[in-house]
Design a protein around this nucleic acid. Sequence first.
DNA 1: GTTGGCACTCGCGCTAAATGAGTGCTAACG
DNA 2: CGTTAGCACTCATTTAGCGCGAGTGCCAAC
Lengths: 356, 356
Amino acid sequence: MVQKLDIHGDDLDARAREVLREIIVQHISSGEPIGSRALAKCGHFQLSPASLRNVMADLEDLGYLQQPHTSAGRVPTDRGYRFFIEHLMKSRALSAHERESIDDQVSHSNEFDEVLQAASKLLSSMSDQVGVVFMPTLLQFTIRSMDFILVAENKIMCVIVGTNGMVVNKLVETRLALTRDELEKIGRYISSEFSGLTLDQIRRRLILMTEQERALHDQMMQKTIALGIDAVNDVTPVQRELIVEGATSILTKPEFADAGALRKTFLALQEKEKLIDILESFLGEEDLQILIGSESDFTQVHNFSIVARRYGTQSSPLGMVGIIGPMRMEYARLAPLVDYLGRALSRKIEEQEHKN
Amino acid sequence: MVQKLDIHGDDLDARAREVLREIIVQHISSGEPIGSRALAKCGHFQLSPASLRNVMADLEDLGYLQQPHTSAGRVPTDRGYRFFIEHLMKSRALSAHERESIDDQVSHSNEFDEVLQAASKLLSSMSDQVGVVFMPTLLQFTIRSMDFILVAENKIMCVIVGTNGMVVNKLVETRLALTRDELEKIGRYISSEFSGLTLDQIRRRLILMTEQERALHDQMMQKTIALGIDAVNDVTPVQRELIVEGATSILTKPEFADAGALRKTFLALQEKEKLIDILESFLGEEDLQILIGSESDFTQVHNFSIVARRYGTQSSPLGMVGIIGPMRMEYARLAPLVDYLGRALSRKIEEQEHKN
DNA sequence: GTTGGCACTCGCGCTAAATGAGTGCTAACG
DNA sequence: CGTTAGCACTCATTTAGCGCGAGTGCCAAC
C-alpha cells in the first residue's frame, strides 16, 4: 500500500523552485495558506505579487500546490512536500545540546524496553509530535542465555538474554512439575547448547530432538525439551509491539482544532496494526524514510506524514523509530533528528553485541 | 485536599427528595438541564409544573441544584450529587453476565501486572469512562523468593516473587563480579532466609548483617549482602504507578465537545502524581469511595468525579481501582461495578496467598 | 397547598449584509 | 517577452439583527 510519488521536477526552473520552497517553509511554520502578497513581502524575491501569482499558478498546474478554496492562498500538496524533501530542503543539523540529550537518554539504561520507551518519549518531546518505536520481533533474535525460575507450581519465569543485550522475561505456564535444581540444569543446558541461535531455530531443533533416541530414554532430556518448547512458544506471540508516545502533542496543533478531527486522529493512533504494517514495510530500507499523506492508505485517510528510520545492525534490522504528525511538519529539523536517534540506537546495540 | 461535603439533608421532605432524585437521574442520562415541564411529564409526580417549580426553587436555595442561566432548566450541584449518592441512589446490581466477565478477566492471567492492566481496561469498557488502577507499592510487599540471573558482566536480572503471586523483574547493575553458581547460591540463601518479609524489612536486615562478625569474614556472605542491598535499592524506586486506560472514551462525551475542554482533560489525566495522591489518601478506607467535583482541588478544576475502591487483603491494602469521569456519571451502576471489581481482585490476591 | 395564567429572560439558530484576503485576467510598460 | 499595476470577481469568515422556544418567577384564584 506504500507507494512513493515519483518526481523528477525537471519542469521547474530555479525561480519556481525558490517560490515553492518559500511557500512550504512559510506554511510549515504558520499552518495557514500562503498568498502572493505575503510571499512578496518576505523579501526573498524582487518580484511583485502579480508575477508571483503567475509562478504560483504554474506550480498549481503541475500539482505542487493547491487552493483550499478560490479566495484563499495556496497550500502544498503531497507532491509538493515530496519535491521539497527531495530537492529543496536544507536539513538543519542538530545542535550539540540536542545530540547530547539523545546520547544521554540512549545510554541511560541498558534494559532494552526502557531504552526504546525513552527513545519514543524523546522523539515526542523534541519534535512535539507523536513518537513511535516499533519493537524488535523476538523471532529473529539470537540468544546468549535462557534461564528459568520457579515462581509457583506450574509457573515458571523464563529470562532470555539476547546476544545484543536485550532481556525478555516471560511467565510460562507448564504442566511439568519441576524443582529448582532441575530448572537450573535445564537453563545451563539450553544456554550452552543453543547460544547464538534464534528462537525460531531453537524451536526447530527442540522439535527435531523429540525424535532422537536419547530423548526417549533420558527423563531429564524430556523435561528440557518440553519446557524449552513451552517457553519458546509462549514467548514468540509477543513479537510486534508498537510504543506510541506523546499522543497529546497533537492537541495543540491547529489542524486538529475541532473535536471531530481530534477524535478521529486519536482513534487512528490506536490502530497499531496498521502503523506496524507500514513501518515493517520499511524495515528493509537502509536509510531515513519519509511517507507523506497520500503515499499510503493509512496516512492518506488521516493526512499524516511519517518520518522513520530503522535501527539495528547491518545484517539484522531490528525495528523502526519515527515520528507521526500532520503533513505540515518541520522535515528539515525532524529528519536529522530521527536519523540521529536511529543511528544512536544502532550504535548502542552494536556496542552491546561486541561487549558480549 | 480531599474534603467531602457534609450533608445531613434533614431539611428535605420526602417529596423534595423524590424530585431531586428524579432530576439527577434524568440529568445523568441526558446531560441536559432539566426543566419543570419535563419533570411533570415523567409521570412520577401528580403535580403541575408550577408546583414542581416551587420545590425546585427550594432545592436551589438549599444548594442542591443550580441554573446554568436564567432561562434554562436546573442541573445538580456537587452537593446535590453527594446527597443523591448517600441517600437517594438505588444501586443497580450487576447482571450475571457482567459479573462473569469480570471474574473471567481477573482469573485469566496470573501475572499481576497483566491482571491489573486487564482490570483497568475492563473498567473503562464497561463504564465507558476512564479506568484507573493504582499499582501496589513494592515496599509493603512480602516476598516468597528472590532469584538472580547473570545477564552480562555487572548486570544481573533479579526476579522477585511475592507471597501474593506477584512477580517483579528488575535489572540490577552491580560492581560485583559474580558467577552463575554464586548467584544461584545467593538466591537460595535469600529466598530461604527472608521469605515472608517485606522488601523494606529485608533491606534493614541486610544492613544490620553488615555489622555482624560473620559477614566480616565469610566472603560469600559479603557478596550476598552487597547484591541483596543493590537489588532491593534498585527495585524500590518503582513503586507508585498508575495505569490509566480508555482515555479516548471521553472523546464522545458531550461535556467535552469542544477542543479546549478536551485538551485540558487529556493533560489533566497525564498528571498522574496528583491522581495518585488522591487515590493514596483513600487507601486506608475500607469501602467504596466517591469523590465529586469540588470535594478535592484536582477534581474541582476539571469537574471530574472519581469512584474508587481499594483492593488487597484486610491487613495490607495494596492499591486502588476506579473510574474517572464527568460528574454526571451513572453512579448507580458504576459504584457496584467498581466495588465488585475491587472485591474480585482482593479475592484473587487472597487465594494466591493461601495457595502459597 | 395546589394550580393556571402571564410577563419576562435569555441562549440558540437563522439569515443577511459587510469584510477582506486572495485570485485571474488584461492592458500597459521597459 | 517578462514584469507590473489595476480591476472585477470569488468566497470563507465575521457581525448584527431577529424570532423562537424553553424555562422561570410571581400572582391570583381555587
